[in-house]
Design a protein around this nucleic acid. Structure first.
Lengths: 392, 392
DNA sequence: GTGAAAGCGCTAACAC
DNA sequence: GTGTTAGCGCTTTCAC
């Protein structure tokens, strides 16, 4: 056994000359306790530096109010937006959240096994990760409350978008502008390095094809380029497209991150955007607004929040309806897409960063309109600075 | 009491016809258990769908192997990089991590109170948040293992950078290029909305001033503009600078995010970068490489990892040295900064995205050089696509 | 090797 | 109002 170090509730009770039940009552709400007793107990707690054990309380109470959230590639802007949305809700609902970041299949399986084999969390949120039969079966057997976000899973409450429709949306937007040769840059699983089961890029590609077909355009396999996710790879893929004898006049990228790579390639190859090349992304991450990237917006933060909310409902014993919650998509038209053949002599100014910055979203998607006023020349670090007051 | 629902170790023991101790041994390592017994117990566990309670085990064992990490503004790229770094280490050390995101002082104090008032986590990592005497005292009283990352705190193991030196580095870089009128865009606390105690922008400003002074340049208060963190505000502040009768030829932004706002403003005002305006940021987030932003690189992910490592050491009962761990800084020269007066007739191509994309970092800062090879025209979604194989 | 039993630190009935 | 006590579900001696 360990050395008895930290004071326990019994120590407090003894010192205060009361029973442990009373101390417990003081700790939780303090109802049915005489004020003088309460004060005395509180005083002893402070004096002894007593800190109740969450572990013991949770065990005794029968619930830890802890959930786990499994996210892939934490550093991706879309992932972190979803995570933030979930955390906000869970925080408000007073749940602690264990975050499991996953970059490989091994990590995924490791965390999934840990979460299902033992009772670690009251419930689990799985984000953008494909769960196979085995995984689902494990959750089912353990009767572990589970929801997914951005991932379909049979019988599991899920918050998703229609990626196929999104692909059509983006493509339709470009078709509408008059483009006929439209390229696609998206994800492919690197050889021998199977991914986490992301399927969104593939479904967006499907939408792209459907929409082209609907417009009576013959699909040109040359115009579809797939590679591992990331801006650098996307740039290379786009570069391949731009080097084609008959390059596309527009490129639809499966994510904003990849669209940024496409923009990069366009700049390098001397394809002014949108003059000579239109670009459309997907997600509407914060940088998209900054770069004036036309894109298909999906409610990222909201999706995380909804997943969390639905898990909470599940934990309350409520039925969650509908099982498959589909969030809306919409095209956001910015200046990276325009009619083809707009190429101005001299190239014209790049569209990048060209919009009214005062309408860009700042922290957490809140869009602000700004007004600044010089308040004073304040002293900062021993010297003067011009301090601007921000007025909402 | 609750209804006895989930099977317990006692159920398993009874069903298997063994004692609970044996089941426990099977669960943990399985030493000193006859193979036949082990197998039988395992079989019963599976049959009953028994899942050991982490809570009970942790309580009995005396440790939950759980740490908490407090981060501000989770969605900021620099924050998420630090978090990812910490999670990677904690994961490897087999700690579960409770993530607390904090956007306001109230949230900060709420989480800090929760973490110190009760024994929830074995240790705490505080990232980029200023802890005042009260906070520190609470940790001290509770003898709660604590480390900070990107935040100074008396007597607490901390992993930091020298922001002042970083400010000098950026400024020196611009001075070296020949700039004399250098603007600064950084953070100021919005009125009546005190922040989380970020101090880095202020210290970078200090470095900027020191370096200017060392170069014998009179500080011009007009050239220093402060406002709430974010690209939109930074764009507005930069715009104010560019509208000055005698605008700066270079701007140092206190973060890459703000530098992106500065780039945006430059584009709008028709200040080609770096022809008419040089821009230097701070952090070297992923987008910085993509945008060819010159910047002061700090090891973000590594800082989180180091914080985690040091907390683990603390939890092992080891002494952590040095208390103040300072990580290196270096200037990264990209094409957003150049000699002043390089403005080409016609504006010239924007520097943005102009670099060799194949040297951009992809996932998690790994820098890759690329080689693609067309592998095959594979079938995807019922149609052909050109699949590229990526060769390292 | 294995079972019995004593905790781990708390909550919640229950009696007074 | 308050003290007592029986668990919560596990780990870990300690005999056998």
């Amino acid at each position: 056994m360990r050395t008895p170090d930290r004071p326990t509730i019994a120590d407090v009770a003894a010192t205060a000359g009361v029973g442990t039940g009373t101390v417990s009552r003081v700790l939780n709400g303090g109802v049915n306790v005489r004020e003088s007793t309460r004060l005395k107990v509180l005083e002893v707690i402070k004096r002894l530096g007593y800190r109740p054990s969450h572990l013991a309380a949770a065990l005794s109470r029968g619930s830890a109010r802890t959930v786990a959230i499994l996210v892939p590639h934490l550093t991706r802007p879309s992932t972190v937006a979803r995570l933030a949305g979930a955390l906000a809700v869970l925080d408000e609902q007073r749940y602690d959240t264990i975050v499991c970041n996953v970059d490989t299949r091994e990590q995924r399986d490791h965390h999934l096994a840990a979460l299902t084999a033992r009772h670690r969390a009251d419930g689990v949120i799985v984000v953008s990760i494909y769960l196979d039969k085995q995984h689902l079966e494990a959750f089912h057997r353990g009767a572990i409350p589970l929801v997914t976000v951005d991932a379909v899973a049979a019988g599991v409450p899920q918050t998703i978008i229609d990626d196929m429709a999104g692909g059509r949306l983006a493509t339709a937007h470009l078709l509408e502008l008059g483009h006929r040769r439209i390229g696609f840059v998206g994800d492919a699983i690197p050889r021998g390095e199977p991914d986490l089961g992301f399927t969104s890029s593939r479904r967006r590609l499907l939408g792209y094809r459907r929409e082209l077909a609907a417009a009576g355009i013959d699909p040109d396999p040359e115009l579809v380029r797939l590679g591992p996710h990331g801006p650098a790879v996307a740039a290379e893929l786009a570069d391949q497209l731009l080097r084609l004898p008959d390059p596309p006049t527009a490129i639809f990228a499966a994510s904003d991150t990849q669209a940024m790579g496409v923009l990069s390639a366009a700049e390098r190859r001397g394809f002014p955007v949108p003059g000579k090349l239109s670009v459309v992304g997907f997600d509407d991450i914060e940088s998209a607004a900054l770069l004036n990237l036309s894109t298909v917006r999906q409610p990222l933060e909201h999706s995380g929040g909804e997943g969390a909310r639905r898990l909470c409902a599940l934990l309350h014993g409520a039925k969650v309806r509908p099982i498959r919650q589909q969030l809306p998509l919409r095209i956001v038209r910015r200046s990276s897409s325009a009619r083809p053949g707009l190429d101005l002599p001299g190239g014209g100014p790049s569209h990048l960063f060209a919009a009214d910055a005062s309408r860009m979203p700042d922290e957490r998607g809140r869009s602000r309109s700004h007004a600044f006023r010089r308040v004073s020349d304040i002293r900062l670090g021993g010297q003067n600075a011009c301090r601007m007051e921000w007025v909402a």
